[in-house]
Design a protein around this nucleic acid. Structure first.
Length: 474
RNA sequence: GGUCCCAUCGUCUAAUGGUUAGGACAGCGCGCUUUCAAUGCGUAAAUACGGGUCCGAUUCCCGUUGGGACCA
C-alpha cells in the first residue's frame, strides 16, 4: 500500500482563513491518525494577488493553531520548470493547444449560450490551429492561453465523505490550464504537484468538487494515478452563505486578536462538521481528536459557524489555565502599567478568569481595580434600603477596617465584615461596600476586591462613597 | 442559465429499518448568592413536504420544495 500523504495548499492572498484552517485541521487529523505525512504547499502562481507577507501569516497561524506540517512549505512559484516539462508533454501528445480568442469574443459567446439555456463553454475555435502556426503566433507575442482538450465522457470518483460523484465532462469544454508555458493555472498545477508530491488523499473544501473531474481528466492525459478524494462541507455564516470577509471575522488572526485560545479554536473547528462515534463528549484535546478521528464520519451538509459555542468552549479553556499562564497570554491585551505589579495582576486574573470568555474582555472587566469609575450615589443603595442606612453601614465598615492594623487580605476583611452582616443584613451591608469598592453594579465580591486593593485604597474608596452619599443627603 | 452537492431542535450534532428521536451551545425557570460570573438541577425546542418499498421508516428509493457551491 502506498504511504499516506496529504496536503494543505493555501494561496497566500490573505491572512489564514478559517476555512483553510479547517481544511488543514482535517488533513492534519487524518495524517496523524493514520501515521501519514502532512505536506504544506503554497499556491502562489497568481503573482498579482500573492504576497510573501500573507505566506508568513499563514505559516505563523497554522503553527499557532498547532497544525504542524511534516514537509514543505513548497512554493509553486519555485516549481515552474516542472510544470513546463509536463506542459510540453501535453503539447507533444496534442492534448493542449494555444487559444487566441479574445476575452470580449468569449464573453459574447457565453452570453449567447446562456440565453439559449446551454452550459457556457468554449467553442473550440482555436483547437484546429496547427501547432506550428500557433506557436509562431504565440512567440510573436500575440496574447494567448493554453487550453486542454477535455475528453467528452463521464468521470466518476468515489468521495470518502459523499460516496460516488459523477460529472459529464463534455459540459466543461476545453479549459484553460495555463496562461503560457511558464504560468500554469490552478487545475494544472495542482495535478502536477499532487502527483509529484505523491499525495495519496486529497482532502479539500467542497468548493473544489467540480474541479475534481477536470483534474482527473488531466491526470489521465498525463498518465498519473488518481488520489483518493474527500470534499469537506463548507463553513457557513448566519445566512447559510459561504463565510465572507465582508460580514464576518474570517481570519484566524482576528480570532487570535480577540483573545481566543488556539486549543479552543482547534477543538471547536474539529467539531464543526464532524463528531466522534464513541461518546457525546465535546471538550476534546488534540490527542483525543486525533485518536477518534474518522473522515467517513464527516458531515455532508455545511455548518454554520456559531460564535456562541466557540465562546463557551473558549471560556472553558480559559478556566483551565493557571493565573500565571494567563498573565503571559493576557499581557498583549493590557495597558502597560497594569503589568507592572505582577502580584496584583495575578490576583485580579484569578478573580476575573471565570468571567471572561475572551482575553479582549479582560481589560473592561478589570479596569475598576486601577481606576474607580464614575458612578451615581444612588447605586450604593441596595434594593429598598434608605440612603441613611447605606451611609450608616458604610461608616461602620469604615470604622472597623480603619482600626484594623494586622495583615490585610481577603480573608481578613471577610472575618471583619461578616459578623456585621448578621444584625444589619447581608445585602444591606455588602452591596454598598461592593459598589463603593468597584463603582459598578456588577463585580466580584467586596472581600476579594478589598483584598486586592489593599487597605489604603479600600478606605479611600469607601470615604469617597460616603462623600457621595453625604452630598445627596444634604 | 447549466452542472454538482446538501436537508434531524434557533445552532453544532447523535441515532445508518424497531429509541418516550439522545447530547452540547444559546434560550427560559429554579437553587446557591449582596450583584455579576461560575456551578447544580429542571424546562422548552427538530426528523422540510409528498409519494413509494417494508410488519415497521429520521434511516432505503423517487419526486417536490428549499439551501449552497462551482462554471461563467
Amino acid at each position: 500500500m502506498n504511504p499516506i500523504r496529504v496536503r494543505l495548499a493555501p494561496s497566500p492572498t490573505g491572512s489564514l482563513h478559517i476555512g483553510t484552517a479547517r481544511t488543514g485541521l482535517f488533513n492534519y487529523l487524518f495524517a496523524k491518525k493514520l501515521g501519514g505525512t502532512f505536506v504544506l504547499r503554497i499556491e502562489d502562481t497568481d503573482l498579482e494577488r500573492s504576497e510573501p507577507a500573507f505566506e508568513k501569516d499563514i505559516l505563523e497561524h497554522l503553527t499557532w493553531l498547532g497544525l504542524s506540517w511534516d514537509e514543505g512549505p513548497y512554493r509553486q512559484s519555485e516549481r515552474l520548470d516542472i510544470y513546463e516539462k509536463y506542459l510540453i508533454q501535453l503539447f507533444e501528445k496534442g492534448d493542449v493547444y494555444y487559444c487566441f480568442c479574445r476575452e470580449e469574443e468569449l464573453e459574447i459567446e457565453r452570453q449567447e449560450m446562456m440565453t439559449r439555456g446551454v452550459a457556457p463553454k468554449y467553442s473550440g475555435r482555436c483547437s484546429h490551429l496547427s501547432r506550428e502556426q500557433a506557436e509562431q503566433r504565440a512567440v510573436q507575442g500575440e496574447s494567448s492561453v493554453i487550453r486542454f482538450r477535455m475528453p467528452e465522457t463521464r468521470i466518476a470518483f468515489e468521495d470518502m465523505i459523499r460516496g460516488k460523484v459523477e460529472f459529464d465532462t463534455s459540459l466543461f469544454g476545453d479549459v484553460v490550464i495555463a496562461k503560457n508555458v511558464r504560468t500554469p493555472l490552478y487545475n494544472f498545477a495542482v495535478v502536477v504537484d499532487d502527483f509529484e508530491m505523491k499525495i495519496s488523499h486529497v482532502i479539500r473544501g467542497e468548493d473544489h468538487i467540480s474541479n475534481t473531474p477536470k483534474q482527473i481528466a488531466l491526470q489521465r492525459a498525463l498518465g498519473f494515478t488518481t488520489p483518493e478524494y474527500a470534499h469537506l462541507p463548507l463553513i457557513l455564516d448566519k445566512n447559510r452563505a459561504k463565510l465572507s470577509k465582508r460580514f464576518n471575522a474570517v481570519s484566524i488572526l482576528e480570532y487570535k486578536n480577540s483573545g481566543y485560545l488556539p486549543e479552543a479554536l482547534f477543538n471547536f473547528i474539529a467539531l464543526l462538521g464532524w463528531h466522534p462515534s464513541i461518546s457525546d463528549a465535546e471538550l476534546l484535546t488534540q490527542e483525543e481528536l486525533i485518536e477518534q478521528f474518522d473522515i467517513s464520519r464527516v458531515q455532508k451538509a455545511g455548518a454554520i459557524f456559531d460564535i456562541e459555542k466557540l465562546n463557551w468552549m473558549n471560556a472553558h479553556y480559559v478556566k483551565e489555565k493557571t493565573p500565571e499562564e494567563l498573565v503571559v497570554l493576557l499581557t498583549p491585551f493590557l495597558p502597560e502599567e497594569w503589568v507592572r505589579d505582577k502580584e496584583k495582576l495575578v490576583a485580579i486574573i484569578s478573580l476575573e478568569q471565570e468571567r471572561m470568555k475572551r482575553f479582549s474582555e479582560f481589560s473592561d472587566l478589570a479596569r475598576f481595580f486601577f481606576d474607580l469609575p464614575e458612578y451615581e450615589a444612588q447605586l450604593l443603595v441596595w434594593k429598598t434600603m434608605s440612603l441613611e442606612m447605606a451611609e450608616d453601614n458604610l461608616k461602620i465598615v469604615l470604622g472597623v477596617l480603619g482600626a484594623y492594623n494586622e495583615i490585610w487580605n481577603t480573608s481578613a476583611v471577610e472575618t471583619l465584615i461578616m459578623p456585621l452582616t448578621e444584625s444589619r443584613g447581608r445585602g444591606e451591608m455588602l452591596w454598598p461596600l461592593r459598589v463603593a469598592l468597584s463603582g459598578q453594579s456588577h463585580s466580584p465580591g467586596p472581600f476579594e476586591i478589598a483584598g486586592i486593593l489593599g487597605k489604603e485604597d479600600s478606605i479611600r474608596r469607601i470615604e469617597l462613597a460616603l462623600q457621595k452619599l453625604a452630598a445627596l443627603l444634604m
